[in-house]
Design a protein around this nucleic acid. Structure first.
Lengths: 225, 225
DNA sequence: AAGTCATTTTTGGTATACAAAAACACATAG
DNA sequence: CTATGTGTTTTTGTATACCAAAAATGACTT
């Protein structure tokens, strides 16, 4: 009818946001018809959007059985954290060698922002600042491809990462680690920056056993519910 | 009409193969209608396949301007080799720690296969054996996610990698490096295996300046031809 | 009463049709 | 001769209609 002129790309962005921010939880069904009427478009662009999201791994499409927000098994979660730690370490290592002074200044500001929020018992606020700090380091590696890849893994893990910070004492430790990483970067100690970042990320992966006791059931079940 | 029952997934595989093997070269237009009649399907599954390929980065879709086989600029190529080297190094490092003895035996066989082909002036044959050797190491890291990611980067680089081996002396050196990497893996020296693999892959990236003089023009031009 | 098979219903996959935008070509004017 | 503008053509993007397959439900049989 009224050809909206809006692109299917918008759907990808909207759904991605809903998944990353947790509005849509792993395992949630993504019904093509409901989505099409919710966004006031036909099923075709909805299908294309889901296809794209399936490519990034955010949703899982089982042939003839529909698409759901991707659930990750514990084994996959551990694997992804292992890769994530290495990619972030690489970002930090390269950032220590390549980051411009002016960008390091901005990184100091972001670190201060994190530190300011650490005591406010505001885990969500800290989470946002934390994301900005890490993304500034991704950008600092001066490797756009690495930056994209790292953000992609982060996005897939984000529904699970968010829960991590609710563990007691994690915010404080995280903030301290940020300061150490920043110090290594600002002094150009690439190896140290990489090692610290790897540990900073890996500690979340290592805490997966603890996670088992905290996380809602739906987050952990494999795709076949 | 005749409902094929076959999945659009087949199209992805076919196109992927054509791109990876070089039948379709970077910059080639992928016209939806021609593809649909070539594969005897309608435009819908073709579009879905292209959407999927765009997700993996093998093709580039410019809104309203069609999709082409992804061209990579020199800058992107360097970036991707930088990431590739690190991912493969990680695979080798983990493989040295986790690979089963029986799989190491198979790796020895693959290495011997490479060595056997090194003197046959058969660059394509060596290329295939080389791929199998590397993929065996990916599998050996026992991290399916890392394996997928690494294969993905490799696929995107493959049109450019293939040319590397045609450089004089490269096959021989590559084969020697395989032997050294294998030795480190079989003795469980994880750090050494990682470092050797990183160098093994990175040397191709470092040779990009040489590549400039060899590669066909079409391979290097940015998307906007 | 329970299990199995058939039918119905829902939903995913494909094809076709239509609209809009961009590429192309030709013509005309400067 | 070149450059710009308009009309045509090609092609992408979206909508709708159709078909097939799987899940759900109900009836019949054992």
């Amino acid at each position: 009818m009224a050809p909206t002129g809006k692109l299917a790309t918008d759907l990808v962005q909207a759904l991605e946001r809903d998944i990353v921010t947790g509005v849509l939880k792993p395992g949630d069904r993504l019904d093509e018809r409901s989505l099409s009427e919710r966004f006031a478009v036909s099923r075709t662009p909805v299908r294309e959007a889901l296809q794209t999201l399936a490519g990034t791994g955010l949703v899982t499409t089982m042939p003839r059985r529909g698409t759901v927000v991707a659930s990750i098994t514990i084994a996959e979660l551990i694997e992804m954290f292992e890769v994530m730690a290495e990619l972030e370490a690489m970002c930090a290592r390269l950032a220590a060698r390549r980051m411009a002074r002016v960008d390091v200044e901005k990184l100091f500001a972001l670190s201060a922002e994190c530190a300011a929020l650490r005591d406010h018992a505001n885990a969500d606020g800290y989470y946002e600042a934390n994301v900005r700090f890490h993304e500034a380091i991704y950008a600092g590696c001066r490797n756009a491809y690495l930056e994209r890849q790292t953000k992609n893994v982060r996005n897939r893990l984000s529904p699970y990462r968010r829960l991590q910070l609710h563990r007691p004492g994690r915010v404080e430790r995280s903030s301290d680690e940020h300061a150490d990483i920043l110090k290594a970067i600002s002094t150009g100690d690439a190896v140290q920056a990489g090692d610290l970042m790897r540990a900073h990320v890996a500690v979340q992966g290592e805490a997966l056993n603890d996670l088992l006791a905290i996380v809602p059931r739906a987050y952990l079940e494999p795709l076949a519910s």
